[in-house]
Amino acid sequence: MIWQLDLLILSLIVLCALATISVKDLFSAAIIFGAYSFLMCLLWTEMGAVDVAFTEASVGAGVSTVLFVAAVFRTTRKVKDRGVKRYWTKGVGLLAATSVGGVLIAAVGDFPGFADPLSPASTHLSPYFITNTLTDTAVPNIVTSVLADYRGYDTMFETAVIFAAGLAVIAILRRSKTGVQHESREKVILSEGYEDTIIRLVARKMVPFMQLFALYVLAHGHHSPGGGFQGGVILGASFILIAISYDMKMLLGRMSEKWNVLLGNIGVLVYAGIGFVCLLLGANFLDYSILHRILPATDEIMARSHGMLGIETGVAIAVSAIVVSLYVNIASQGKHDKGL
């Protein structure tokens, strides 16, 4: 950790945060927010949180920006300024922000110093994970072993939350094509009728490599940064790339809505199903060490490693399906006719 670099990145982050909430153009706000996420990713790499940085790079800087751009494209680009001074709301906002901030600043005095190796958070539970991950699970990436094994319940319900979010977006937005359509009066031209052979060709050639990389990130998550969440998001991003560079029909012809939701289901079910298999074999829910009875040529330690790979695969399937579903519904306002 180099504090000068830390401070540089942090000041850029604060600048980006101020810029993104103050620009009048929502499209610019979305792009500046993407830059903000990317700076966050740099900050986390610098602090040693490589898995978090990887997730931020794929989710925050990638998919979130696409979702923002899609939402802005489907609504309006300009922030209307009608000259009405809203002193009352701004005053309440400032008051709330400063009072919450003041309470938190008062509490900082009780925090341990930044990066103190003897802070309470680093001395009670986490040394167990660090010292035992190899002997318990044979997985050198501690983040993966804690995510998928020691705290498997947590991750299972997080996956269920993602799935629920996908269902909520479908419930809010999905309309049939023949219904009453409320076209926006003000068209935002980003790529309408714009068909570029170079972009299409390059995108088409990139997609298989992206998907291969996604599988690598998923499967190699035990030994390097990565895992089910990151791999799933990259896989979903490859489908989004098809939808952006061609059109929505091309994507939906290959991956229909029915299949998409079904895959989201299957992902969560794979996770919970592995847990139930453990239960059926006589161990606790999500206790993968018992899987050595049905997996060939494994002992109890390697069974935990393989069990983690299984549930990470479930996470990747669910996350990729839901990311695609979020994009398809937001970019087409739930009509599934055309995207960006």
Binding site: V63, F229, L326
Partner: peptide, 19 residues
């Protein structure tokens, strides 16, 4: 590693809430 795990899932959930 523990805060990293908690925040990794929080980032992915944040894209769900954003959607």
């Amino acid at each position: 590693p523990l805060p990293h795990v908690l925040m990794l899932t929080a980032i992915v959930v944040s894209v769900g809430t954003l959607g």
